[in-house]
């Protein structure tokens, strides 16, 4: 069973998904970050493939990506690092990047390398549904990978249903129409949007991302769906003390989880 499916079958609430950019702050940070995240209690890890032109990401993630590329990160290096990380942990790993990266690597070769490295899922925000169905769906299904699609406040109910049908992976609920690293408060308007998605009663697990930055926003997000994704806030934390990646990672995750654990025991 895919580690993602297993995770959601065993745990349907308070799922903590942490995003980081592979190769930041240093080329060899990937394995220690994954290990520390898993040890500290992250349920799911999203590994960003650094990209020169990350259309859907904010400045924090773009800057970390530029640094990672300067550090020499490539997909070949990243697959080696993920293979190594997989020897140490069973935490579900999802790769996030842009379709051009997959296209240049070769879709089939990419999917095979991801599976061999112990990757469980993919997020490619600029891969359109039609092209996914035509060029990619069979490949990822054969490899046992799950693909996650994004939905936003502008996504119509019909389209959300189509997205849910085209993939068994978790749905990435973009918390507001904004790029990553934005606002830290969840507004009434956002709550209304979450209610609308909840009312669709989709079978897929749902995680909220964008604008989730601390224990409080994580807790609020978890009231609505299965969990939440934190990215830019973690990247910023890593940037504050680049020499102590493991300690920073552990204390960041504890800072999110400990208050949550104490308040969600109802």
């Amino acid at each position: 069973m895919n580690r993602l499916s297993r995770l959601f079958s065993e745990k349907d609430r308070d799922v903590l998904n942490i995003y980081f950019t592979a190769g930041y702050p240093a080329l060899d940070s990937t394995v220690p970050i994954i290990r520390s995240l898993a040890e500290a209690g992250a349920d799911l890890i999203e590994v960003g493939m650094p990209y020169s032109d990350p259309m859907a990401d904010g400045e924090t993630i773009q800057q970390s990506g530029m640094r990672a590329l300067e550090n020499g990160m490539t997909l070949r290096v990243l697959f080696e690092q993920l293979t190594e990380a997989r020897r140490h942990t069973d935490v579900p790993l999802v790769m996030m990047g842009y379709y051009n990266q997959v296209m240049q690597y070769g879709p089939k070769r990419f999917v095979e390398a991801a599976r061999a490295a112990g990757v469980d899922g993919l997020i490619l925000p600029d891969l359109p549904a039609f092209e996914y169905q035509r060029d990619f769906k069979q490949l990822v299904e054969d490899a046992g990978l799950e693909v996650t699609f994004l939905v936003t406040p502008q996504t119509t109910d019909d389209r959300i249903r189509q997205i849910a049908e085209s993939s068994s992976g978790f749905i990435y609920v973009v918390s507001s129409a904004s790029i990553t690293g934005g606002s830290s408060q969840i507004s009434d308007k956002q709550r209304a949007y979450f209610d609308r998605i909840a009312a669709l009663d989709l079978p897929n697990p749902k995680l909220i991302g964008f604008g989730i930055s601390d224990a409080e926003t994580f807790r609020t997000a978890c009231e609505y769906f299965n969990g939440a994704i934190i990215g830019s806030a973690f990247i910023r934390a890593l940037g504050k003390d680049e020499d102590r990646v493991e300690e920073t990672t552990q204390s960041f995750v504890r800072g999110i989880l400990e208050p949550t654990l104490s308040t969600t025991k109802r």
Partner: peptide, 20 residues
């Protein structure tokens, strides 16, 4: 109808841009 000239074109955009 999908915006392709031969195999070039299309709309490879994140969902955040889809509605517009």
């Amino acid at each position: 109808e999908r915006g392709y000239y031969g195999r070039f074109g299309g709309a490879y955009i994140p969902e955040m841009l889809h509605a517009n």
